[in-house]
Amino acid sequence: MKRCLNEMKLSFPARGENEAFARACVSAFIAQLDPYVSELAELKTAVSEAVTNSIVHGYRGRPGGVISMQVRLYSDRRVYIRIRDKGCGIADITQAMQPLFTTAPEEERAGLGFSVMESFTDSLRVKSSRGHGTSLVMEKTLRERSGDESVKDGISNKSGRKSGTGSPVR
């Protein structure tokens, strides 16, 4: 039976500076499961996309909005991440999740946020209500550690750059 090993909740204002803050927090918390460097990089990227979406789209760049984040670590090495905002919501989730769909091409948004989140996690669920906000849940089960300690090196260096990170190329 899998059980929840640990949980954290966090809320912060929807400011651009907090994109880095949010992924650093998630990264520090997930470190408890001793993930591979590549898995950590993937989850950080997915979190960065989700938080950016809330700031840019949910709150349309207006400060004052709040983003809340919840992370749970399970005994089967599953990581659960929920990111919520109380912004404008997504009118058409199916359309928003299409690769390259963007409402802000002039800002050089690539329209790949959801594609990145889907590629770098095992599952992504999005619930949104117009005028009330968006809630997004991502889950990823981390691989079992092989016990090769050399792999742990370089977390603060370039992600996945060292040989032997075992990064699966999908």
């Binding site: 992924r23 990089a41 950080k44 990227t45 960065s48 996309e49 950016t52 800002e107 050089e108 948004r109 690539a110 790949l112 946020g113 594609s115 990145v116 260096n157 370039k158 992600s159």
Partner: peptide
């Protein structure tokens, strides 16, 4: 020397 990049980096390269 880039440590981290999300899809904003793709936008940057595209542009």
């Amino acid at each position: 020397a880039v440590n981290f990049m999300d899809s904003s980096g793709i936008g940057l390269v595209m542009g």
